[in-house]
């Protein structure tokens, strides 16, 4: 498939709209802080920023290098922020799904947030070269399957409409390839992938849904999962991780992006999402659900696998 450029010309206007809105809500005192993206040191790169002065609004940007899911700052690292008043947050569609999930799990309250939605045509897969052009090759795999280019239900969304071309769905293709293999071939594939893991837990650290005060995988009484970065413990960790995110994962693919060993972690999450869609017609979306698919049931659920 030939490389296809992706139109990101609206991002300049989006940046301007975000800055104007941020300046307004900060100076009017509607929010005490805004979590957004700012330019980082390397040319074209971006980093998360928290601003609390109207003058700093000019620092906010939106570019294809704005890959982070900022929702994570509201659950873990910046836990204290929501308590100081309403917090503004810049969200792409995928990030908004994560926020909706967190609201559904009572981790956040909608009234404590001021959502600045971003019309997004896609972001980069890797920020190693942050200034490269966004194309069908350099785009994040999650963006090839995105159905949330325009966030809904936000307090503010710039007027621009993102132009998102139809791209080859990278995860769906890979899942189909793996499903066609035999179990032992699949085992060999994942064994190879998991053997790379160094147990840095970056995937857990960056995940908005891994907010447990104590992770099951850190407990040693009883120790359910080996903590050493060896094949047995690695496999167990990744299976447990995928299972604990099943029905909750919003598909922001941050786990996969931050993985220093390039393990295709989101592949497991997408597979779980696919199964939950087929079994219980559940999909991560903008709606705040009181209960996830694995916290509820119907009497007619499939039980063809039970004797």
């Amino acid at each position: 498939m030939s490389t296809q450029p992706i139109d990101t010309t609206i991002y300049a206007a989006v940046t301007e709209a975000i800055q104007t809105e941020a300046r307004r809500i900060l100076s009017e005192g509607q929010v005490s802080a805004i979590v957004g993206y700012s330019a980082a040191r390397r040319n074209g790169s971006a980093q998360p920023i928290v601003i609390n002065q109207a003058d700093d609004a000019a620092k906010l940007i939106f570019t294809p290098a704005c890959v982070n899911n900022l929702a994570v700052y509201l659950t873990k690292a910046k836990k204290e922020i929501p308590k100081t008043g309403k917090v503004g947050i810049v969200v792409k569609g995928c990030d908004l799904k994560a926020l909706s999930g967190l609201m559904g799990e009572s981790q956040l309250k909608r009234e404590d947030l001021y959502l600045i939605g971003v019309p997004c045509a896609g972001v980069l897969a890797s920020t190693v070269q942050p200034s490269i052009e966004l194309t069908s090759n350099s785009i994040a795999p999650k963006c090839t399957e995105c159905d949330a280019h325009l966030p809904a239900g936000c307090d503010f969304v710039p007027d621009q409409t993102p132009i998102a071309p139809e791209l080859e769905r990278k995860y769906a293709t890979e899942i189909a390839r793996l499903e066609a293999l035999t179990p032992s071939e699949r085992w060999a594939y994942w064994k190879e992938q998991f053997s790379k893991c160094i147990k840095c837990y970056a995937c857990r650290q960056v995940c908005p849904f891994c907010f447990c005060e104590q992770c099951l995988c850190d407990r040693n009484k009883p120790q359910m999962v080996d903590t050493t970065p060896r094949p047995a413990g690695n496999t167990a960790w990744h299976i447990v991780r995928a299972m604990h995110l099943a029905g909750r994962c919003a598909g922001c693919a941050e786990c996969e992006r931050v993985c220093p060993m390039d393990i295709p972690l989101n592949l497991l999450n997408r597979k779980m999402a696919k199964e939950l869609k087929e079994l219980y017609d559940h999909e991560a979306g903008f709606d705040v659900l009181e209960k996830g698919p694995l916290n509820m049931f119907t009497e007619k659920d499939d039980q063809s696998f039970i004797k």
Partner: peptide
Amino acid sequence: RRFAVFRKLLEFVG
């Protein structure tokens, strides 16, 4: 529900 999903995960892992 939990096991319906878990067995799909195990199957995918091989």
